[in-house]
Design a binder for these strands. Structure first.
Ligand SMILES: [Mn+2]
Ligand SMILES: [Mn+2]
Ligand SMILES: [Zn+2]
Ligand SMILES: [Zn+2]
Lengths: 138, 138
DNA sequence: AACGTAATGAGAATTTTTCGCATCTTGAGT
DNA sequence: ACTCAAGATGCGAAAAATTCTCATTACGTT
């Protein structure tokens, strides 16, 4: 039940929050914009204001329920946080997003941060390229 | 002379372009927003419209004179391209930006792209953290 | 069930970036 | 140097994404 997840995260289990979390958990698409969520709410008849979508996604981010990405300038992309950190590889032709985790890179990043005297809090690695499908068809 | 660099890049050596390129080359700050460039133009008395700043920076990017970054949501950051690729480590307290290059990470990225069948065209790695100065003073 | 606090919705406002178009430059040709 | 067309600029309007304001509503605790 989403209500419990919300309470556990210290958030009131309001209808909009439950609906949004439910949608994020049931969607097969893992990475989506606020607008994507908004449209999905409209289609399912669950009217939630766009401002609320933004507020809720931001709150979800601050309690760790979702992660926000900036793959391309212009808009944020959100993803339900399933616990395992990973980075992304994005197709510049079709927008397909693959995920990966590389221990070597993770380790080097920590070393680099330390070497520069930074206390690392986060990092974002995004590889851009042309996916197998898009390469074939041209 | 900036005019030559512009011609070499296939761009007309217009006054706004020369002024902007000149500013980018002479500034001690390497990473700046369109607004930063705009304000600098105003201060130096070289009036260049903001729309032109955006147009020129985008053109500079497409001919490889500058690189555009999306360190944080909300606005692009531009940097004069000096030839050597590098990644960034950004202080979340003061905004300080350090640069680094790590051959191991670069290599792993190429391997990951290949393993996923992607033809890599670009990548962006940004480490976020608290810089030495900001750690000390608190 | 009642209440105080926090959340929502709708639209206005912001912020960043792009567009449209009349006017002005640049650079090639003379 | 002079002319001219293509391309560039400036300005304000327009877009696009996100945040804010504030009156109204919903939680969840009593
Ligand atoms: Mn992901
Ligand atoms: Mn840099
Ligand atoms: Zn693709
Ligand atoms: Zn700092």
């Amino acid at each position: 039940m989403q209500s419990q997840d919300l309470k556990k995260a210290g958030l009131k289990a309001t209808l909009p929050r439950v609906k949004i979390l439910n949608f994020l958990e049931s969607s097969k698409v893992r990475h989506m914009s606020a607008e994507d969520v908004y449209k999905a709410m409209l289609e399912s008849g669950d009217d939630v204001g766009l401002a609320t979508i933004y507020r809720v996604l931001t709150q979800f981010e601050s309690v760790g329920l979702v992660t926000r990405h900036h793959f391309e300038e212009g808009h944020s992309v959100f993803e339900l946080n399933l616990g395992e950190h990973h980075d992304h590889i994005v197709c510049i032709k079709c927008g397909r997003i693959d995920e990966f985790y590389d221990a070597t890179i993770e380790k080097r990043q920590r070393e680099i941060a330390a070497k520069n005297g930074f206390e690392m809090t986060d990092h974002a690695l995004c590889i851009y390229g042309v996916c197998p499908d898009c390469r074939d068809q041209k």
